[in-house]
Amino acid sequence: MARKARKYGESAEVPLTSMMDVMTIILVFLLKQIDAEGQLITAAENLVLPTSTSKKVPTEVSMGVVVDQNWVLVDGQQITETKKVAEQDSLLVEALDKVLQEKRAVEKEAMLQRGEDAEGGGKVIIQLDKNTHFGIMYKVMATCGLSGFSNISFAVNMKNPED
């Protein structure tokens, strides 16, 4: 009886060598995948970006406009319904224009305080779903341009980033 108790009381050692092997492989894989520069844009939810051969990455943080199936958003804030943008005839999306003009005024003010040229800046990155109609796209683009954000870029998924 005493012998049995001693058997179960012994601490069982887990072989860690094989675990270490697995961990080392995972670590090497993750280090290989890591993007040391980081990403200045994050893909919005509820949309699938198109894939492009472009290798250009943003070098500074810009204002973000997202157009998904339901909403047009500026820096994550819902501005107007995408459906309304599609139905209107005018190039100018008024609700979006109002928000963008306010943002541009704030940006200009900040640039003046830093002693920079206030006419500079005006950068915007637009994220659109790959199925978004060109009609919606150009209305949003035109509104960005008219409200002072004339340096327009589209966010895309990079094709073959390892090339």
Binding site: L27, L30, L31, Q33, I34, D35, G38, Q39, I41, T42, A43, L49, S52, S54, K55, K56, V57, P58, I125, Y138, M141, A142, G145, S150, N151, I152, S153, F154, A155, V156, N157, M158, P161
Partner: peptide, 19 residues
């Protein structure tokens, strides 16, 4: 920590002139 820093899908930009 590394998992949070990984970009599984790298994003790029396409610049455009005004419409």
């Amino acid at each position: 920590v590394l998992l949070t820093m990984i970009a599984f899908q790298k994003l790029a930009i396409v610049e455009i002139n005004m419409p």
